[in-house]
Design a protein around this nucleic acid. Sequence first.
DNA 1: GACTCTATGTAATGAACGTTACATCAAGCC
DNA 2: GGCTTGATGTAACGTTCATTACATAGAGTC
Lengths: 295, 295
Amino acid sequence: MDATEKTTQPSVAELITQKADALTASERKLAQALLGHYPMAGLETVATFAERCGVSAPTVLRFAGKLGFESYPEMQSRLRGELEARLQSPLTRSALPRAAVAASGHPMGELLHHMIDAISSNIRSSLSNIAPTELEGAVNLLADRKRAVYVLGGRFSSALAVYAYEHLRSMRGNVRRVSGQNTKWTEDLLDIGKRDVLLVFDVRRYQHDVITFAETASNQGAKVILFTDQWLSPIARFARHVFPVRIETATTWDSAAASMALLETLLEGVGRTDPDHVRDRIEHLERLRRRPPGG
Amino acid sequence: MDATEKTTQPSVAELITQKADALTASERKLAQALLGHYPMAGLETVATFAERCGVSAPTVLRFAGKLGFESYPEMQSRLRGELEARLQSPLTRSALPRAAVAASGHPMGELLHHMIDAISSNIRSSLSNIAPTELEGAVNLLADRKRAVYVLGGRFSSALAVYAYEHLRSMRGNVRRVSGQNTKWTEDLLDIGKRDVLLVFDVRRYQHDVITFAETASNQGAKVILFTDQWLSPIARFARHVFPVRIETATTWDSAAASMALLETLLEGVGRTDPDHVRDRIEHLERLRRRPPGG
DNA sequence: GACTCTATGTAATGAACGTTACATCAAGCC
DNA sequence: GGCTTGATGTAACGTTCATTACATAGAGTC
């Protein structure tokens, strides 16, 4: 079969963020619980799931229905499939990168075209699954200059953290990047309070120290915005806003390009909430850069 | 019978290997299937699990009984517990979700769709304009383990540098990131020699310090690989391989998503030149990273 | 070769499950 | 204030499930 034309069905987590607007209050409780205990909560029986969330069984069924499933077992089947994919280690995947690369033409040419298709497809399906209100919520948190913003990323996703940090810093003050040795992270944790925001990037394999940091920050009352993959980092349990992004490209490594695309969308949204302030700040910044202080 | 032993419960997998001798032929089929698709196979219904292994339902129940479980659901409960422990390291109850966000915003939806189109278009036109041989040349330079690789980025493009650095470092040794205060960059310049490679990211507005660094490195004989925008950084004059990427999205800021896509393509190419070495190295890395599991 | 023991499948049963129809309740509107 | 609309719970229903009792088949024993 050809890998270019495969129709990747959306994960349940993506469906939730996608249909977030259409959910009622009780259904939102279910959504939060499912994202928080993903995907185990959805593999329980209807009655158990309902009781855990303090709602009735039919509400659970209506919830599954709104997500587009014909029945509750159908949703469970989807969740089970995702779980199976998630349990695969990256090494198992890297053992089978496409052998059909050297089909025709230059191998690097083939690789280029494969990446174009795979990444474009990831971007399209990831961004179109995001509920506008969900994005708006995150934008408002980040644009609120009364809140301090902390940015954190794992090993590979630290690049995204750097990118977010640099842009946010050019738009507003009070932005900090949690970086360096993670023994120094505790100092950052000291200051994080109720009104603050933590923007965290965590894709598989989810890093223990990043999770712990996010959990502690959340316990201290910080609002957490999470960028993760479709299988959801455990941080989703504490996060106020979760953005699942597709990362597979049928290659050795996962791709951050779609996450980058969504991040840029988010940053653009932040810039648009108060364009005048941002423009003034950037101009000021450029002036300072041109004529360094003291010189 | 009596669960007086309150010590850490043995996993189902342990129970299987423990009771392996007492299993009959059919039961052994079940054991093998369960260990092969652990623990998902055991979370299915009795009928499904039985049919998958070509045995009858009662055989499954006898199997669960031999492992010491009172009932099949009890075994499932154990498996589910193991799975949950495996998926989520930190265990704490998060606060109950708060229903919020009532408004529905269209502007964010429009922004999302605009970014999808703009970035996808950028990626397509950028990557399809890359000459395969050009990419191959850069790949060969970066895959050559006899050469030291230095990675450098400007203010916004430093995120790409971080990303490249982390991936290259997982594939090969002798990779360094030129970072920190740019007064310290001179120390890095000391070591750069004829056989070395400088991977540099520079998009508008081109940073003087980055240009100077690249020029000096080039003068010392280093091979320069440049990621830049379509208007080309001045570094292009010294660069051995130049990759121009489209960065406009008709928004406030330029986009790095297409550069990220091309970078990932390049990295994938590097990984494919000596897959065995890369796999061994990653496995070694994972082994070093891993901590002794609790159970 | 009939007997015994164990392994395994078949069929029936009661419980739990997902599902549906209907009742209830709160909020918004004229 | 009575009416409408949507969200949510209650209760009953048909299905599927795990479970049990029983029947069958095959291997070993005398």
